[in-house]
Amino acid sequence: MMIRATDDAHAMTDAAGAQRGELVRVRILRQDVPSGESYWERFEVPYERNMNVISILQKIAAQARSQDGRKVAPVAWDCNCLEEVCGSCTMLINGRTRMACSALVDRLLAEDGDEIELRPMSKFPVVRDLVVDRRRLFRGLEKVEAWVPVEGSYDLGPGPRISPDEQEDAYPLSTCMSCGCCLEACPQYTKVEVVRREGESEKDFEARRKAAYDAAFVGAHAVSQAMLFNAHPTGRMIADERMKALTRQGGIQMCGNAQNCVAVCPKGIPLTRSIARAGRAATVWAIKRLFDR
């Protein structure tokens, strides 16, 4: 099945006609500062084999000229590993959220005509161009206490024994790289942008920002991490805390089961399974709490 996809892509590439020496056209939605206006700018870069969106952006940075030859500031974007494991380079490529480093130009051209469109993620505040502020995503991990509550790092022997089945269940969840694709595609996850008020102290602003994050949906990514740690023999010891977090405002109840999250996750993490498990755990937990009070 894989081969077919590849061969198709090649066939279509030929049809699209992108070849050595030709130019790849790119349209980028830019924004200079967080509160600024956004605007489109077009670029052209020489085509190369196996090119991905990152190499396009690198070339744009090097040439720093728009399609019509004007000198423009290079486009800002995030990346690091270029192997799709660090989660940095999420953006909207031809309208869909994905990782720029694994978005091959050949495939994009085959998919979507002769121009590639890049936009920043829409669910996070823009910092500049394609760079967005994803602190809310990490706040979600704090909210659900996504860690194993160990006593400390002194040598207390090995961890709990874990069956291969449990490991195989947990491992995929543990590959989540906090890229935010699942949040970007989720119709229930909406943008929260908190702007510092005149004269507001750093601390107050910080507190207000976090409160705003906490009030809104945590999203599939954090729900899945909560389930990962609730399944771990030691992590489970604070399962109640996580359930409390997941049933507070912005918790699991906000999910509308659109299942986009699982469809766009670049790591193929079974997010709907996590969400359903969280739903089940919340049901049991809520009923238990009703009778244990």
Binding site: D155, L156, G157, P158, S163, P164, Q167, A170, F229
Partner: peptide, 17 residues
Amino acid sequence: IDLMDRLGVPFNRTSEG
């Protein structure tokens, strides 16, 4: 390795766990 194991790293397992 023991410490990282305790911290929850999903190391691959033998059939005995």
